[in-house]
């Protein structure tokens, strides 16, 4: 399991949080999704054989949130 931390722009609406969490969680190979509302970060664990960090970032980007940085630790 690898870990990814995405830094987003400021999050202001609590419903954005639910949205991002559900979208990332429903991506295959991704588990343990945490959206930090105040820090504007998404943290998740993923299986590098199933999915890449870039793909997770793309899911968030598609929801309309800019991903400013993307850090992966194995």
């Amino acid at each position: 399991m690898a870990k990814v931390t995405l830094a987003l722009d400021e999050l202001t609406c609590p419903s954005c949080l639910t949205k991002i969490k559900q979208a990332v969680s429903s991506t295959p190979g991704v588990t343990n999704v945490k959206v930090l509302f105040n820090a504007g970060k998404v943290k998740a664990e993923f299986d590098p054989e199933v999915v890449q960090a870039e793909k997770i970032a793309a899911v968030v980007t598609d929801l309309g949130y800019e991903v400013k940085s993307n850090k992966t630790t194995v």
């Binding site: 609406c13 419903s15 639910t18 949205k19």
Partner: peptide, 12 residues
């Protein structure tokens, strides 16, 4: 609309 897609009834 995008919140609704994830079954969230938002203020919007």
């Amino acid at each position: 609309f995008s919140a609704l897609r994830y079954k969230t009834i938002s203020i919007e």
